[in-house]
């Protein structure tokens, strides 16, 4: 990584999205891989102490409901990746204890859901 070339020394812009600015919550991004009806990964505001299972049932499932495959979606059979690594969530543990911290990106992978997969809907 390089450094900015400014017209005075030690230029540093404010870090605008640090976790303190989210009033006790943190950001979690979720990408449902190869399911592009939602055009981009989703951004959620979540309590870092919320359990993973609550995150799934209270936040993620309602958000994905408009997708035509949402009814067949079973989280217990899904594969996950967290920030680029394979990830085995502990359902009862909190997001933060699962290693899901501020601005983490979770990927939901459901290769058996293929009815619409050719067009990656």
């Amino acid at each position: 990584m390089m450094s900015v070339n400014a017209n005075y020394p030690n230029y540093q812009g404010p870090v605008r999205d640090r976790v303190e600015n989210f009033h006790g919550s943190q950001l979690v991004y979720v990408l449902w891989e190869r399911h592009l009806l939602f055009c981009a990964p989703l951004t959620f505001l979540a309590d870092p102490e919320m359990s993973f299972v609550d995150f799934l049932s209270e936040i993620l499932r309602p958000a994905l409901a408009p997708h035509p495959e949402s009814e067949q979606l079973r989280f217990d059979e899904a594969k996950w990746r967290l920030d680029g690594e394979d990830f085995q969530p502990d359902l009862e543990k909190s997001l933060i204890d699962n290693g899901i911290d501020h601005k983490s990106q979770l990927r939901l992978i459901t290769p058996w859901l293929s009815d619409l997969a050719d067009a990656a809907i």
């Binding site: 990584m1 390089m2 450094s3 900015v4 812009g13 870090v15 605008r16």
Partner: peptide, 8 residues
């Protein structure tokens, strides 16, 4: 190239 600029 310029992280100090884009963090904001």
């Amino acid at each position: 190239n310029e992280p100090e600029k884009y963090v904001q």
